[in-house]
Design a protein around this nucleic acid. Structure first.
Lengths: 169, 169
DNA sequence: TCATTCTGCGACACTACTGTCCTATTAAGC
DNA sequence: GCTTAATAGGACAGTAGTGTCGCAGAATGA
């Protein structure tokens, strides 16, 4: 059901629960048993998606160059496809949601960018906020185009290349 | 009213007409007189926003290097702020809308990218579709961050730099 | 001033989605 | 086979948004 919700909501967040139930091939009753209301489903999908991001994140050795960690994280994110689109399509989508502390992945991401800057992989003149924004924008874009235009790994390669080039000195 | 609609819908496309009327400081009745239904307002805003993009586009000399035209177009787009966010927040938002021929700005954009590639400003290995996607992603991102993090022209500078670097050989 | 137009306000029916409930049917486990 | 749990299907009221209408007050302009 979470997969169905991600697939449907990645395309249109205002889609009804009926649409999700249909996609998941269950009745609306069943959907409602597992998730009392719409908010519960949103939260569950949000938590699950964030948890997956975390998992992927843990794969990276803390000792590796920060830019390599960013790259690995980016590639893994692209693999998540619809989940990433759901998460990052609209920056205001989860405003006010307790599970979506703006600090969530964001603080970590900023720290990573700052480390990469210290390593000389990011130009001094580029604000951290811009680097982070571009990072998410490319992640989202790669996930988006890999739904139609090209295979996932190609999109991931392009996103990685574009990100490194975008921010390097 | 169009400005109000752009401002509100840039933040949340599912926002009600009441919200837009309130933002525009008119009654819902008045809004309804000018735009019979929701679709009419969407179409009007879509057409108006596309027209503004066209106008900005015309400023570029056809003889200039394609990449310079792209840059100028990008800068002008960032100035449009909410209109751009409204247009490009969700790639599927206007699917099926007669005024949103995927070919609209897209065919033109692809042609521009191909010219830039011929000029040597874009790497041969980068697919046109990726360059176009990145272009719109950076345009959207710059419009987005210039609503909060930094002044418009700074965001535009960063977007231009990031785009050129992203795709150059 | 008067006539015309525009606007705001409220009422209304209609629609779509939501959340809840109940019942018959199916599947699973023993 | 029997018991238990899970599911599908439908009915239901409640809610929010939509589109339409009529009317009263304000603004505009001759």
């Amino acid at each position: 059901m979470l997969d169905a919700a991600a697939a449907v909501w990645a395309h249109d967040f205002s889609a009804s629960l009926s649409a999700i139930a249909e996609r998941a091939q269950v009745s609306r009753s069943t959907l409602h048993r597992y998730f009392t209301d719409r908010q519960a489903l949103v939260d569950a999908l949000l938590l699950d998606s964030l948890a997956r991001l975390e998992t992927l994140d843990d794969g990276g050795a803390a000792s590796a160059p920060a830019m390599d960690t960013l790259e690995q994280y980016l590639r893994a994110g692209v693999e998540m496809g619809d989940r990433v689109i759901f998460l990052f399509a609209d920056p205001n989508r989860f405003a006010g949601n307790p599970h979506w502390s703006a600090d969530d992945g964001d603080g970590e991401m900023r720290a990573l960018v700052d480390r990469a800057r210290a390593d000389g992989a990011i130009d001094e003149r580029i604000p951290t906020s811009w680097a982070v924004s571009v990072y998410y924008a490319l992640l989202y874009t790669a996930a988006e185009v890999s739904n139609q235009d090209m295979p996932r790994h190609v999109a991931a390669d392009l996103a990685v290349r574009s990100f490194r080039r975008s921010v390097e000195p």
